[in-house]
Design a protein around this nucleic acid. Structure first.
Lengths: 191, 191
DNA sequence: TTGATAAACTACTGGTATTAGTTTATAATA
DNA sequence: TATTATAAACTAATACCAGTAGTTTATCAA
């Protein structure tokens, strides 16, 4: 009955580790408690519910993704930065497929906290997009377009909805190019 | 113990109805059996498992969506047809939000049957896209792009990941326009 | 009428999240 | 240092869940 020094943070991180190892669908509080050397009920001293824990994990996933996404050079052109982010987004989602499902299969709608983290990922692009000559509204439209496209493509790919008729990497490249090209053009207009 | 005349079809349809009414997350075989006036175990005479049933429902959703999508006039230009489909896709997903989740939250990867139905929705556009001057590979890339974009946008919207900073309808319109415009241009080149 | 089969049933297993009430270790206070 | 309050662990239970084994019954075909 010695104290294990648990807290919300280390529970969330252990849960993320467990999901990454064993898969999202296999995850349970029982397994999590076992791994932490604690009884299942004890987790409730630190978390409110499974869905709250899931939201915490989702936020962690977004944080890690943002970290990886913006690690590269910031010195490129706006279009290059967008390209870099789009490629990094898919790379992260594929390398952390089970963790990414946390966002996809989230019960009900996400917590405000989670939503904010999710927006951060593309919100930091706002100044870049404005620099491309997009209006305030267009920046938001483009941001939503790109997030939706990336997320949807990855989700459908992961679920097996794309056949083998063409290389999926190429399709993603085609999509990203399609989305970014108009920005290059617009940027060109101004200069 | 009188026979209720159940079969796979009417179970799937009752399940879809239940999901539409009460929500995907509230659905259970117990509730489904109650509604059908039957014991839970009896369902297993007609279905193999919950996940198989979910796949059946997913297929039904795709069928209904395809029905609604292609009900309009076929006499428009290719770009107009694409626009019509994109708008219908989101309309259906919003009007049947809980049912649409069946596709999103599907356990593991979907069944081959389901995947085929999903592909049908956009595959019928192939000749249209080819008529726009797209190569065989480009047709597939564009199809994947559009499906991904539509699906992702709707999913993020439904999950509350888009704030109130701009009108969501306008953002969707922006996205669809962005994707279709290059096809108009390409079509124009040929003529 | 008999026999086979399909569809219902009962009763159960092992799993899940969650809660209530209890004990104990730590930290703060007198 | 002794006391007390609190946080963190515990035990034990509840109410669900999907799925299974074995049994009975209704229907159809021979």
């Amino acid at each position: 009955m010695a104290r294990k020094g648990l807290n919300t943070n280390c529970i969330v991180e252990a849960a993320a580790e467990l999901i990454a190892e064993r898969g999202f669908d296999q995850f349970s509080l029982q397994e999590l408690a076992d791994r932490l050397g604690v009884k299942k009920a004890s987790l409730y001293n630190h978390i409110d519910s499974l869905s709250e824990l899931t939201a915490h994990i989702g936020r962690l996933v977004f944080e890690r993704m943002a970290e990886q996404l913006y690690s590269g050079a910031e010195t490129n052109s706006p279009a290059e930065q967008l390209y870099h982010i789009a490629m990094g987004y898919r790379k992260f989602a594929k390398e952390n497929a089970e963790l990414y499902k946390t966002i996809v299969k989230m019960p009900a709608s996400g917590s405000p906290d989670l939503i904010e983290k999710g927006q951060e990922i593309v919100h930091s692009l706002y100044p870049v997009l404005e620099a491309c000559g997009l209006s305030e509204q267009e920046v938001i439209h483009f941001s939503r377009t790109m997030r939706g496209a990336m997320h949807g493509f990855i989700t459908l790919e992961e679920a097996g909805f794309f056949g083998n008729a063409a290389d999926v990497d190429e399709s993603y490249f085609y999509m990203v190019k399609s989305l970014i090209q108009p920005l290059r053009d617009k940027d060109g207009e101004r200069s």
